[in-house]
Simulated assay, not measured.
Amino acid sequence: MDKYSALTTLVCVVEQNSFSRAAEQLGKTPSAVAKTIAGLEAELGARLFERSTRRIQLTEAGRLYAQAAREALACLGQASEAIGQLQRELHGELRIAAPLGFGAAFLGEVCARFALDHPQLRLQVDLSDDDQVILGSGHDLILHEGACDLPGLIARPIGRNEIVLAASPAYLARQPLEVRLDNLLEHDWLLYWHPALNRHIWQLRRGEEVRRLELPVGRLLSGNYDLLLSSALAGLGILHAPLWSVAPYLADGRLVRLLPDWMVDPDAFGAHILAVYPSHRRHAHKVQVFIHYLEQYLREQQLA
């Protein structure tokens, strides 16, 4: 049995939680994947999975062996990277996960530049707003908003997650009311819905002065931030927005920052953009090089 291939197959089955999806990911047949797992079980003298017609589940032995397999593959990967570094070039694959909004706002451009600068490195970029999926995904690097205190993960701040109020010139032209603290509830709002966010109260700060305000009723409410941003650009209303998502539109005039003297207090997503990676990857050269590259970009855009 090719042990490296067998361990890779095991880890893929665990990550995909499916023999058939793992087979598709690996370019193998489901029967070949099942045969590999059966070979490992025969060699160990223990079952790695409990199987039923509907799902598979790791046994206690399976959890122990899958963790050991991950660590072994990580060590081999780091050795390969070290050899690549001797040749002064990044090789292999870098798997990145991030929220959907990061893709269009800055991650797409950063990845394109990075890939051009490192032609021997493959990038896999997965975008999702499901924290549970992303943080448990096994990626080399996760870009994240909000607290991250899961064991085995290092969370490093790399940029600001500052919240601003913005609207298009078209909205401001058709709306006779000047935007002031005392009439915010009379304006049209585009509100992002997320279970972690307070749906009743938000807070603004100017120096030592703090205003605790009722959250307005949204003209448009959505769990898809891209839809809200498009609606703001189209002139539908005021957007409560992370600065990283609207910085290009503020720069070119398609959006206008409102109440610029006031800072919106960080919400449940926190005050920072975080680079999150497994502790056993802390010395992985390609991870650290990408983080440094991204930090430089955010600094250039005045977002760090």
Rank of each mutant, 00 (worst) to 15 (best):
A69H: 12
A69N: 13
R70S: 12
R70N: 11
A72K: 15
A72Y: 10
A74M: 14
A74L: 14
A74H: 15
C75D: 14
L76F: 06
G77Y: 11
Q78W: 09
S80N: 11
E81S: 08
A82W: 13
A82D: 09
A82I: 13
I83P: 10
I83C: 14
I83N: 14
I83K: 14
G84H: 07
Q85L: 07
Q85C: 08
Q85S: 06
L86V: 10
L86C: 12
L86I: 09
R88N: 13
E89V: 08
E89S: 10
E89F: 08
E89P: 07
H91K: 14
H91Q: 14
G92D: 08
G92N: 06
G92E: 05
L94C: 15
L94I: 11
L94Y: 09
L94S: 06
L94K: 09
R95I: 08
A97V: 03
A98N: 03
A98M: 03
A98R: 01
P99A: 12
P99K: 04
L100R: 11
G101C: 09
G101K: 05
F102M: 12
F102N: 08
F102C: 08
G103F: 04
G103S: 15
A104T: 11
A105H: 09
G108E: 02
G108T: 02
G108P: 03
E109M: 07
E109L: 05
E109A: 09
V110G: 00
V110S: 00
V110F: 00
V110A: 02
A112D: 11
A112Q: 11
A112P: 08
R113A: 05
R113C: 06
A115D: 05
A115R: 13
A115N: 08
A115I: 10
A115K: 10
L116I: 13
L116P: 06
L116M: 09
D117E: 09
D117V: 04
D117N: 07
H118L: 07
H118K: 05
H118W: 03
H118D: 02
P119L: 12
P119D: 10
Q120Y: 05
L121H: 03
L121A: 05
L121C: 06
L121D: 01
R122M: 09
L123R: 01
L123C: 02
Q124W: 03
Q124F: 04
V125Q: 10
D126W: 06
D126T: 12
D126S: 10
D126F: 07
L127Q: 01
S128R: 05
S128L: 12
D130F: 13
D130H: 11
D131H: 08
V133G: 07
L135Y: 05
L135W: 04
L135D: 06
L135T: 04
G136A: 05
G136L: 03
G136N: 04
S137L: 00
S137Y: 02
G138V: 00
G138M: 00
G138N: 01
H139S: 02
H139G: 02
H139V: 03
H139K: 01
H139Y: 03
D140R: 00
L141C: 03
L141V: 01
I142C: 00
L143S: 02
H144W: 01
